[in-house]
């Protein structure tokens, strides 16, 4: 038994849909991480999980707790905003790291530095 059983049917269906969509997107992102061949392709994969994958699950959590506690529980938004702001930083740094290391190693097919 979960707390979801205490919800009215329409809300339970909405929350169930959001959970399934969110977890499927996250799973697909992680699957892409395993499956794609080059690093620059793989850097796109986690954004599936951090954009709508996370948003759907956070929305499901917001709806459930808001209903159960009878007031607007929106502190999940903090995590959402944090993810929105921090994932680009990590991915950008990682992308630049990969470029930098590939250039130093002289890998073919990597664009040359923009500093001219």
């Amino acid at each position: 038994m979960t707390v979801l059983q205490g919800l009215p049917l329409w809300l339970a269906l909405l929350v169930a849909l959001l959970l399934v969509v969110g977890s499927t997107l996250t799973l697909l992102g992680a699957f892409g991480l395993v499956r794609l061949r080059s690093f620059y392709d793989r850097i796109h994969a986690p954004t599936l999980g951090t954009s709508w994958g996370a948003a759907a699950i956070l929305l499901a959590s917001i709806f459930t707790w808001s209903w159960l506690e009878g007031r607007a529980v929106v502190h999940e938004l903090v995590v959402g905003i944090l993810l929105m702001c921090t994932t680009p930083v990590t991915l950008m740094l990682l992308g630049r790291t990969a470029l930098h290391r590939n250039r130093r190693a002289g890998v073919e097919g990597v664009p040359r530095s923009l500093k001219r």
Binding site: Y40, I43, H44, T47, L48, T50, S51, M84, C85, T87, P88, L91, M92, G95, R96, L99, P111, L114, K115, R116
Partner: peptide
């Protein structure tokens, strides 16, 4: 943030003097 949060584009490098952005 917009370009990175959108799956399918990744911001890699930006050169301030020339204003050129390298996107994957």
């Amino acid at each position: 943030m917009i370009l990175t949060a959108t799956p399918g584009t990744a911001w890699l490098e930006y050169d301030p003097p020339s204003g050129i952005l390298l996107l994957h």
